[in-house]
Write a protein that binds this DNA or RNA. Sequence first.
DNA 1: CTGGAGGATCTTTTT
DNA 2: GATCCTCCAG
Length: 779
Amino acid sequence: MTAPDPKDFKPAPPAPQPGGLAARAMVRPATPPYLEQLNPEQRAAVEALDGPVLVLAGAGTGKTRVLTTRLAHLLNTQKAWPGQILSVTFTNKAAREMKERIGALIGNMVEGMTWLGTFHSIGVKILRRHAELVGLRSDFSILDTDDQIRLLKQLISTEGIDEKRWPARQLAAHIDGWKNRGLTPDKVSQGEGAAYANGKGKKLYAEYQARMKILNAVDFGDLLLETLRLFMENEDVLKEYRIKFKYMLVDEYQDTNVVQYLWLRLLAQGTQNICCVGDDDQSIYGWRGAEIDNILRFEKDFPGAKVIRLEQNYRSTPHILAAASGLISHNEDRLGKTLKTDLKDGDKVILRGHWDGDEEARTIGEEIEALQIKKTNLDEIAILVRAAFLMRSFEDRFITLGLPYRVIGGPRFYERAEIRDAMAYIKITQSPDHDLAFERIINVPKRGIGSTSVKKMHQFARDNRVSLYRAAQAMCQNGGLTKRTASSLAGLLEDFARWRSKLDTLDHTELAEIILDESGYTQMHQVSKDPKSDGRLDNLKELIRSMADFENMTGFLEHVALVMDTTSEDAEQKVNLMTLHAAKGLEFDHVYLPAWEEGLFPHQRSLDESGHAGLEEERRLAYVGITRAKKRATISFAQNRRVHNLWQTSLPSRFIDELPQENIATDDMDSGYGGYDKSVFGGSRFDDITPFSNTYQTPGWQRAQQRQKSGDNLHTAPKIIEGQMAATDSTPSAFEPGTRIFHQKFGYGEITDISGNKLTIEFEKAGEKRVIDSFVEVA
DNA sequence: CTGGAGGATCTTTTT
DNA sequence: GATCCTCCAG
């Protein structure tokens, strides 16, 4: 998939009124060159400018190209100005990419496309303009997940609820779910409100919203929900935006949730010029409220909608495509598409079983090294995992091998503790009433202001209906704190006042440096013996550096709140490591898909929480994974894997069974493509086990299947079952300390400690390990 | 009251 | 392996 050549596009002549007489009279070439490069379906999707259009774009069918060309076409035919087109994407990455590619087509006219962005960033923009209509001030702050949890924890403990029993995260998840479905507290049904803490959920939600209004803050969900409320309650505002957005373009429509859907529908009822692009087979955000239904019922929502299917795949070889198609055909809820490719045969999808996760990482590492020697571009190699923790074994391996790699969407820069601390200092300097930020750093570095003092301040703040900062000020002067605490606190408040006075005069990066320096925060890390401190100091420097890209502090804070990732452009070739979710929309020559094991993939949690729908979503995730590959896909699984420092035995994923056999090569020596050499790297006991035969005869697998049949798997996994069942089981372990045992991975050993079903065993060869009791037998 | 040390419990995916 | 939480000493 390549971007259309910029020189094929002739910029539109300057500017008669769109749709005006002059525009209509203008002579244009019959077929603009950029259209000729498209296939008939793509072209139809680009040219159907007016009225509702749904483009069902299968993986690798040139979706982004259609989107960008369509935008260019809209501008070129002068149907609209850049500022009259609303184009929403799902991620910042997608928004950035689209902007770049449109820029390549239309040049700096792209700067006029002010309404291109994620739902959230567009929501903020609209909300800031009309903040007072939803009870906010226009300088409201945006809370991230961490702030959200802290705030909820406070509310929960005030309510006298045991946070142990009812975790704040759970409440946050409920609230998020409600917001995703467009439910304000008053609209949450009693039954649902009861889902948390015996019926207190609804009340807490209302309290949370009220508290946010006092703090002049919103969370991610509000950015959508409050914008929707704004439109629904203010007809004139809605009308304004209906007129403003002459054309609407929605990317990844299958990932929209109910609020986003309502929001779009409300706006689209004006001109009806809405074009949604998506692929029902790639809907992987159901857990975040995405309604695959939105795309499935588009034609009902917009009567007379044109539906265009893009089925010509330009990315993958036939075997890869067939394997992916075969897998996804096991899903029931789909619109159905048949992807075709003109590419030549290529390799079959390779399937490999491993003895354990380490061997899997080793094998993949060796193979990538072999590719590297053959001068393969490392940027074209990716390892896609189901869960982030699976990346670690690959990182370890790559570090040992000296293989350069990058983690995409890994631990986010702005989520690191030191960055959040620094940001908190900056936020307080700018808006003193930001209670959550204040609380975060009030005792970092240590100032002798402990939790008891903070509690007192909270009490005072609540009683007098002021912010924590004001409460602190008052209590410093009027007493209520110990002398020591009060003087320390007074010092801090003075610092803040001083920094604040410089806010307008001093350059924001300079001020940030002064704040970090004078607060003692930098010093705290300099003095620390923690080996990670150096890295933290580097991160702080990087923070200051990235601030320089922004005009002022306000602009920077907005960026941080919405665009959590940093775009570090590195020229060096590196292997890509990421989760399957992060991989959507990307493509690579070589794709590795490790850890296809029951319980992990499909993930047990997904099955427990969403049942059949969850399984289908997991399958779509697998489909997304395979379809990222252009030339070669390698799927693997391991029989043993360490999770939370415990060894677990796993079964191959059911998805492996669903792959069409004729497109799969189970013998890695057959591939003739740098397969690893057993004689060199040491074969494993698993090498001769093909996943289609005796693996499924293992006792564990049969047990798992029996449990599934008896419906006993609601809360336990076939895989993790062994641990979880035993953990909840009150029957004591059959083992005793001192017992000599045998374990199939580690050999003989002696039990030194027992905690529930977890055994600590001193192995003769492998040293001390913790394992689950069901994996060992008395020797 | 504060701060350090040691312990339990997790990790699916993200704006 | 990391973070959060609890407990205990000063």
